[in-house]
Simulated assay, not measured.
Amino acid sequence: MTALLELSDLTVRRGATTVVDRVSLRVAPGECVGLIGPNGAGKTSLLRAALGLLPHDGRSSIASLPAGTRARQAAWIPQVREIAWGIDVEAVIALGRTPWLPRGGKLRPEDRAAVDRAIRRMKLEAFRIRPANHLSGGEQARVLIARALAQETPLLMADEPIAGLDPAAQITTMEVFGRIAAEGKAVVVSLHDLGLAARHCSRLVMMNHGRAVADGPPAQVLTPDRLEEVFALRAHYTRSADGPIFQPLESLR
C-alpha cells in the first residue's frame, strides 16, 4: 500500500541541540496515528519538519513536494489557534479550499459542499454566520479544525488540536479523525491526553528526547515500563466493553 507520509532519518537541530533524532516513520491510508510524549520530546518539531516548515536533515515525502502539491496532499492544524479576522465562520472555513482553486478563482459547488461537510463534522452549523473573532477560544479552535477538514487532503496533520476544548468537543474531534482514517485517508495527531489517544488512535508513536522509542498499537506502546521511563507515570490501562480505558494514577517524579 502506498504511504501517505514517509520519513527517513528525519533530524532537526536547534543550534547545537538535536530536537528530533533520526526518526523514520511510514503512515499508510486508514491509519490514525497518535504522536505522544512529554513536553520537549520533539513532537511539534517532527510534525513541522515533516511538512517542510522547519529545516531538517533526512527525508520527508511531504516536505519534498512543491508547495502547491504539498497543500493538496496534507492539511495542517498548528498549536496556535487564535482568529484575529472579523469575518464569519463560514468564510474562515472556506479558506481551506484555497489549494484547490485556480488563481483568483471563486468557490465552486464542490468547494461549498466541502465547506458544508466540515461545518457538519465539527458541529458548527449554529456558528456559520457569526464573526469568528467573537467566538471563545475553544470555538475558534473548532473553526480552524474545520478549515483543515475542508481542505479534504489525503493526509491531516494536527499539533495538539484538542487542547483547550471541552470534553465533549475533544471526543467529537477524535471521532472525526477516526472517521477520516476509516474513509481511507490518514491522520497524524500529537496528543497529551493518553486516554483519548488509547481510545481513538489505531497506532501510537511515543517520543522521548527527540527519538521514537515505541511504535505500535496502543496496548503495546502504553506499557507500565514505558510509562514510567518516558512519562514518570503510573497508570491503569485495560480493555472494557466500551473500549480501551487509560487512567493516570500517580506521578513518579
Rank of each mutant, 00 (worst) to 15 (best):
L155H: 00
A150E: 03
S8N: 14
A141E: 03
S136R: 13
N133G: 06
L51F: 13
E160T: 13
L135A: 03
P244D: 01
S24V: 07
S64W: 02
L4Q: 09
A28S: 14
V205T: 08
T69V: 15
V187R: 02
H134Y: 05
R103W: 15
L54P: 07
G137T: 04
P161A: 11
G52W: 13
E228C: 04
E250F: 03
P224H: 00
E90R: 15
F127Q: 14
A182Y: 02
R70S: 09
L25D: 06
R128E: 08
R112M: 07
N208Q: 15
M174L: 15
M122T: 13
P38N: 08
V27K: 01
I83W: 00
E110S: 10
L135G: 05
L47A: 14
I93P: 02
A163P: 00
R142D: 03
A232I: 01
R211W: 02
V176S: 11
A146H: 01
V176N: 05
E139G: 12
R199D: 06
D215I: 01
M207Y: 03
E183K: 06
R120S: 11
M122L: 15
G42C: 06
V188Q: 01
E183F: 05
R108G: 14
M207N: 04
N39W: 12
R211P: 04
T11Y: 12
L35P: 11
L35F: 10
L101P: 01
R13P: 06
P29E: 07
G104I: 10
H192W: 02
L7R: 02
E183Y: 06
R81Y: 03
L196Y: 09
P66T: 06
S24N: 11
R179A: 14
A150C: 12
A182W: 04
F127Y: 12
I171M: 06
G184R: 04
R199A: 15
L194N: 04
S8V: 08
L7S: 01
A63G: 02
I119S: 07
L196I: 12
V143H: 09
T223V: 09
C201L: 00
V12D: 08
A186T: 11
G37R: 00
T18K: 09
A212G: 03
G138L: 00
L196H: 15
R70W: 01
L65D: 10
